[in-house]
Design a protein around this nucleic acid. Sequence first.
DNA 1: AGGAAGATCTACT
DNA 2: GTAGATCTTCCTA
Length: 199
Amino acid sequence: MRRKAYRRDLNALPLSFYARRPDVVAKELLGKRLVRRLEGAKLEGVIVETEAYFGKDDPASRAFHGRKRYNSPMWSEPGRLFVYNVHRYWMLNVIAHCPQEVGGVLLRAIEPIQGVELMLRNRPVRRITELTNGPGKLSVALGVEPSMTGINVMNYESAVFILDSEPFPYSSSRRVGVTVDLPRDLRFYIEGNPYVSKP
DNA sequence: AGGAAGATCTACT
DNA sequence: GTAGATCTTCCTA
């Protein structure tokens, strides 16, 4: 009997992938493919940089001050989007935490692999490596809006979803721009990738 | 009303 | 490379 070969790159990640500690999920999201449906097109990129955020014990987390209206999506089911504002930009996060806990992963940079023309229309830049090498930048390029909070990235029908791929080796560092940080590395990135926001 | 924020852009030394 | 301006969204820590 013939068995169809399993193709990682054709499959979404299951809930069990996201229902783990945010730092573990942040590491393992590197190399996965982020897909954004926009105007009938598919914009796609490889995730090359992430940061993990925890709950009430993490001073840099949106959840630090307890549950409020603006941060309540941090408590939602893993695998959902949470979009929030910093300065003038929207930050794209995927909720990721163990049961009964709180946390998420900030998507900080992607390497564009499909729909680059449309991304460039959204965010005109001279050098292609400047297109999506930062959390605010990738949100502009992909047309991310706060109304996308709650979207299920495990569903192919969603406006944003994530596809599996082979695991990728990673490097780590302190989180970027965080004024009061935890004493450990919670930023993860693909070493040497030109689309990382900073080496 | 005032201030802070997980950032980005510009204009320079 | 780096300082300084930017001018949104949400909070009152």
